[in-house]
Amino acid sequence: MSRRYADHATARRAALTAGVWVPLAVILLGEAAMIAAGLSGPEEIVTHWGPNGPDRTGPWWEFAITVAAVDIPVLAFFAVFILRARRFSGMGRWLAPVSLGITVMHTLGLGVGVVVLSGSSLVPTATIVGGFAIGILAAIIVGFALPRESPATSAPPATAIPLGLGEVVAWSGSVRLPVAFVASIAAIAIAFIVLAIVLVTVADRHALWLFVVPVPILLALGTTFDWSVAVGPTGVTIRSAIGWPRMRIPVDDIVSAGVTEVDPVSDFGGWGPRWVVRNGKGRWGFVSRRGPALEITRRDGRSVVATVDDAATAAAVLEAYAGAASGGGVA
């Protein structure tokens, strides 16, 4: 049975409703419930739990402020990506459900549930688990119920660059994240290191774990901020600035190469090295930015996408050698 797909406008409207307006209503209703319960309930409630149970009390409105302070920025974050999404299929169709799930989970589990049930032994474990369960359930139901667009088709093969007999052409290019962005991420990692040094030497030896935090941040930065793509007679090599991850595709394994438009969040769920499934086939992505990218289709139907400047030339060169390898010959 074939599925009916929605057009982009319909899918976008549904995603905005489910991923922005409904979560906003959940937040507002949650705030109203917390205010109603807080004003008629105890002035102070348990506001923090440690390994041995409750260890701090405070006013109920701490939870109302926390929900607003966390959920509204998170919602704004998702709203930006839903508004900018080019296609609501694949990873893109999960933007709205994830937005709804996170909002429901946090508003109910760590806001409304704690304030309304304050004093009960159900808090916090049952409210957190309950909020988590309801959030995930809401996300799954909405994820399958939302109209979606058809999956993007593979990039059409580029026009092969004409090569003379014995002529050899090579192309290389790279794409780099904006310097300001890289500097900001690096500054966060450095801030953690400084904070860890200060805390460990001045106050708390248990803060040693802070030294670990910058490691994945720097690793993610190193593998994401600069990608280079090299195309030649033998195939294509894609590698990060630090040399890993690295992928080599021999020309014999290439069916076609073309240019596709990439929306990192919609198509791959984010940036960096990514792997998703599209139309039942694996799709690798080396994603540094939004925009044109080189897409290589392999003989087994899997594809590899790399965001790189002047992807059209890279595809044309690759098409020339791929065509030759498959019996097309070189003019």
Binding site: P42, E43, E44, V46, N52, G53, P54, D55, R56, T57
Partner: peptide, 16 residues
């Protein structure tokens, strides 16, 4: 609640 001070507990239970 073992970790709460008795002043906190008094206020908490008075509220309840």
């Amino acid at each position: 609640q073992a970790e709460l001070t008795i002043e906190q507990l008094t206020r908490l239970y008075a509220g309840l």
